[in-house]
Design a protein around this nucleic acid. Sequence first.
DNA 1: TTTTGAGTTGTTCGA
DNA 2: GTCGAACAACTCAAA
Length: 471
Amino acid sequence: MSKNITIHWFRKDLRLSDNPALYNAASSGVVLPIYILDDINSGVFKMGSASRCWLHHSLKSLNQSLGGKLQVFVGDPLNILPELAKKYKISNITWNRCYEPWQIKIDTKLKQILINLEIKVNSYNGSLLWEPWDVLKKDGLAYKVFTPFYHNGCLKAKEPRLPLPSPPKLLLIETEKSLDKIEQLGLLPKLEWGKTLISHWHIGELAANERLADFLDKDIQSYKEGRDFPAMSSVSRLSPHLHFGEISPNQAWYGARSFSLDSNIDHFCRELAWREFSYSLLYFNHELATKNLQQKFDFFPWRYDSKQLSLWQEGKTGIPIVDAGMRQLWQTGYMHNRIRMVVSSFLVKNLLLDWRDGARWFWECLFDADLANNSASWQWVSGCGADAAPYFRIFNPVTQGQKFDQSGEYTRYFVPELKLLPDKYLFNPWEAPVEVLQTAKVELGINYPLPIVDLYSSRVRALTALKSLIS
DNA sequence: TTTTGAGTTGTTCGA
DNA sequence: GTCGAACAACTCAAA
């Protein structure tokens, strides 16, 4: 075995280009590229079903880019890495940093173990534009409001790293031929569900780059307005690619900024900065996923109603735009941002169900399930987060439908049982005259549910409950 | 040091 | 139908 072997530990950086850790590993000799599926240290935040499905395909794609030389393992990196280091007489290990609290914890431990074995560990920033500790207020504390975080923090900090090329020379270690280990990770769901899900996506580094190029070519020019309309293709749909690191935020940031900086470009960059903000919140609040940032919400009278929770999950609430969103999630592993706000506001405010239940379902079903983004966004909607939506901001799912899905294209696609309804009653079929329903072949309570909650009185109920927290 | 104004994404009500 | 005000409290930064 030759000297100077470096392990590159792939985590959320499933790409070759703009991968600082891999780039550096490759420049110092032979590389052993590995991936470890860790369901031990992740605990309750172990990857959800949709994410696993994506991971399966992403690993396949990465393995192909690596000429079939990616080694995959299942278990605890705290054991696996030292063992590998011994077996291959490794002198260096590189990885790109992760920011989930459980991940930070084991990375710290691991570093210590490896250093004791006289192995050099180098970690890099491969998934954020700015490190959380580099964007702080003048008093040294983390920001709690997005706009100053972005303007005074991010934009005045050092410019993000320019994207690196793929390693010019990537010498990979030759290892014994083995069966397809990726298949054996058992990441694919047993149900047919997985196949349907994945049919909506192209996965892997190449696909991610094509997605970005396509977005920059066609959609970014109308991003500011278009991003609100779920039936349009104006959003980037990069979130799962970014989550798994098939593309870096730097590639997206500089890609967008290759155009002159108009309000569309700026809005897209702001969305990338929201991701940074979420990571900052998670980094400085390790319990972001489980604990209200605003303590006074600890006394909030959440209801417990597993029946209503299931109906929400299944897209059977009887509120068309909500059901459309929840079905899009189930069928495609994704939900348009505007609709995420509508369905989550509905769960938290109209149903008064705990945001953590909503977040858990998203975690299970979203391809882009990301602890920082998911937790921060649910807290934002619920009003218990940093810089959160004001308590009185309760989306009216009828108005939202009429405003942002005016022609009903999105809602009719995912709730086909209502497709014959005229626009006027598409978002509020319970208010349609009998003959309109008959003509549209809609039988409420039979082929489409009656609303599980009255929008007006549930809004009043939420306002009362939320108001009681304030004083 | 203190004050002031603004802050991702909304809705309803009454003039 | 359109429009402004009200629906809080708190954080942050500029004046």
